[in-house]
Amino acid sequence: MMYNPDRRKIQDKDFELVEAINSGRFELFQELVKRYEQKLYNFGLRMCGDVCDAEDLVQDTFLNVFRYLKDFRYETKFKNWLYRIATSTCIKKRRKSKFAPERELSLDEFWPKEDAHIPDAVPEWAQIPLNKLLNVELSNTIRNAILELPEKYRLVIVLRDLEGFSTAETAQILNLKPSNIKVRLHRARLYLRDKLKGYFAHDE
């Protein structure tokens, strides 16, 4: 079926370029790569934590995009479609190399225990200006904590809080219900918050 630009349901800055590539101007594919290689490379780093795996993820994703771009239906933003491919490439890749163990995070594990010490004021790390707080060491602590998360939670927090997709977009990319995204995101954030609490507790 031929694509008719007048019947587009949504606007997207990438459609014109995709359309040109699909009309045979394959040399323009490099422009698509230029637009997204850094984003995908960082997505790979955040998901795999290893530069070689991130490099493979970028290459494999673009290979799949190149193969399947002609099937793109312009019914979603190109970026969301790209991340759908990147995500499935990443999941396939990680199944081959076992890394963080898969397990469920329950809300109970983040709920303060009866005998837990509850501070009587908001800690300093949650109050001082962000730019004074976020240094290289803290950035690495957060990145490592994300890598410790089981994959299904890591994917959601990376897409939502680091890549900036909405709940609806993340649900579409991962083919899950928005309610599932919200549950996973909340638990992933609580996990990271506990890691940060531990990190800042060393300074007290």
Binding site: Q127, R189, L192, R193, L196
Partner: peptide, 25 residues
């Protein structure tokens, strides 16, 4: 207060994640 602390520390966690810088390729 415990819930306020919980909210503020979670909010800070989210903002820290959003502020993480991208690395160049």
């Amino acid at each position: 207060v415990p819930c306020k602390i919980c909210l503020e520390t979670l909010k800070r966690t989210v903002n820290l994640c959003k502020k993480l810088e991208s690395k160049p390729v």
